[in-house]
Design a protein around this nucleic acid. Structure first.
Lengths: 203, 203
DNA sequence: CGATCCGTTGAGGTGCGTCAACGGGAGTGG
DNA sequence: CCACTCCCGTTGACGCACCTCAACGGATCG
């Protein structure tokens, strides 16, 4: 895979590709963080994923990207042209299996997110989100407790189906209740996992 | 594939499998219709998909199903044991490619649904849903206009992140405005596609 | 040191949820 | 063939969780 890979660097807040563009490339996140989102004609936005090192983006069955992507922090990506990746996959069936696993996993994550968006309250959404960030950090081999949260309140709102004001209020309450605490550098200390689990389920 | 397939029949409203069960089988819908959903401990439900002939269910990376499945109408399924399907896929790489395509497609559908759940109003949700049903019928080679809608108002609410009362009110308004009309046999006549497109986008 | 962006907080409004009543159709049993 | 029941859908009245609009403060940057 390294033979067909090209590194690509993006400063914080840089567009990577837009929904509707020809889907000529696939990417893999090396470092940094990326948000992928869909827009409505009047500007309403739904963020459909936050991506971290190890995550893929740009997978598409159609000729065009199904969502837009933008870096949140300084980000390093691996870029693969669709054609050369196709060639490689044809010669190495195990790769296809790998991608299938990735896609099926992401599908399960998407279904969890549908439950969150459709049925959870603001507090449940925020608590669920914090726990998810923590879990994903652990899966990446990082610490599960002080979590890095590079996204703005507005990003968070557009991910959770809330306004940034509601996100802010909810986070303030969690701070006031001593469940979380801010640390320097966009870091968040989850001081009470048990409380978060209860809040995420509506207890 | 036919060699390892077992047919399975389900009467309307019959459980097929439950979230958390050992994911020993994969299924393909032959005829009828299926809903797949996730439940919260207090009974809140999010339907994450309605399945029709040609659709797959039971794909999972984990050892257990990630959602529950139940037939909505009398339904015929193909059942494949996970193990034998695995064997077959190992011998026929094209099958893996096929599944990858299915999964990536479903992921795109899931992302559309996230936009709907997170950012659309009740009217936009209902209009979008009707158009999606019509589009999927067309893709299956069926008529796009009188659409079959076998799900209850409650199912619809749990799919769109609304209550059944709100769904009912919204459908009533669409009827009053002459945009849709009920036909016998759970069928719906979409009398004004253009109006529906506008309503789905918030115009 | 002005401009901009982000986050926070308050006051007030509203879209949808909640609760409730009712009617029709389908299945069931007498 | 007619009650009876149950489920589904509809509609109304009311409440509330979250949105909208607004003001303000701190951080970053040119």
């Amino acid at each position: 895979m390294e033979a067909i890979m090209r590194p690509a660097h993006f400063a914080a807040g840089t567009p990577i590709f837009d929904e509707g563009e020809a889907a000529d490339y696939r990417f893999n996140v090396i470092s940094g963080s990326v948000k992928i989102y869909k827009l409505m004609s009047d500007g309403r936005r739904q963020i459909v994923g936050f991506l971290f090192p190890g995550d893929f983006l740009g997978l598409s069955q159609s000729e065009v990207y199904a969502y837009s992507a933008e870096s949140m922090t300084a980000t390093e990506l691996c870029r693969f042209s669709h054609a050369s990746l196709e060639n490689l996959v044809n010669r190495i069936p195990a790769l296809e299996r790998r991608f299938l696993g990735v896609a099926v996993n992401e599908l399960a994550v998407a279904q969890d997110q549908m439950l969150l968006l459709g049925r959870k309250t603001a507090m449940e959404k925020v608590a669920s989100f914090l726990l998810m960030l923590s879990k994903r950090a652990r899966e990446r081999g990082q610490a599960e407790n002080p979590i890095l949260m590079p996204m703005t309140r507005s990003d968070l709102g557009d991910y959770l189906g809330l306004t940034m004001e509601t996100v802010s209020r909810t986070m303030s309450q969690l701070k006031a209740d001593g469940v979380i605490a801010q640390l320097p550098g966009s870091k968040l200390d989850l001081k009470n996992f048990e409380a978060l689990y209860d809040l995420a389920e509506g207890a």
